[in-house]
């Protein structure tokens, strides 16, 4: 399983546009990390989209995050949520990706 994190927008949007996405391959992770990641992905997927629409709404400079989960080389799931509309499941996965 390959997980990619892309960040968009925010106060430093112009810089975010240039930064490469973060990629993690569970095959390269220790077994317990890989299992933890798989569990978080499953939770984020089952949590579904956050309550709000994907347009910026009234928030300004908020960032949005696109997490792509690929299995067997095929893109299977794409999750996008933002700073002001984020499910707890997505937030947990995001934090894990940011700190690993």
């Amino acid at each position: 399983m390959k997980v990619t994190l892309e960040k968009h927008g925010g106060l430093a949007a112009a810089i975010q546009l240039r930064l490469p996405p973060k990629e993690l391959d569970s095959a390269a992770l220790p077994a317990n990390d890989a299992a933890e990641l798989a569990g978080l992905v499953a939770e984020a997927v089952s949590a579904g989209p956050a309550a709000e629409e994907d347009r910026p709404g009234r928030a300004r400079d908020a960032m949005s995050y696109t997490i792509t989960v690929e299995e067997d080389g095929r893109s299977t799931t794409v999750l996008t949520q933002s700073d002001t509309a984020m499910s707890p499941g997505f937030a947990a996965l995001l934090r894990w990706l940011e700190t690993h």
Binding site: G10, L11, A12, A59, R60, D61, A62, M63, T84
Partner: peptide, 28 residues
């Protein structure tokens, strides 16, 4: 706000500041 958060934003009602990741950005 959050861990290694590289941003500051207005959520429509209040202001939110991140501490930065310490690599690229610092406290906003």
């Amino acid at each position: 706000f959050d861990v290694k958060f590289n941003n500051a934003f207005w959520d429509g009602r209040q202001m939110v500041f991140g501490d930065g990741d310490g690599t690229l950005f610092t406290d906003f």
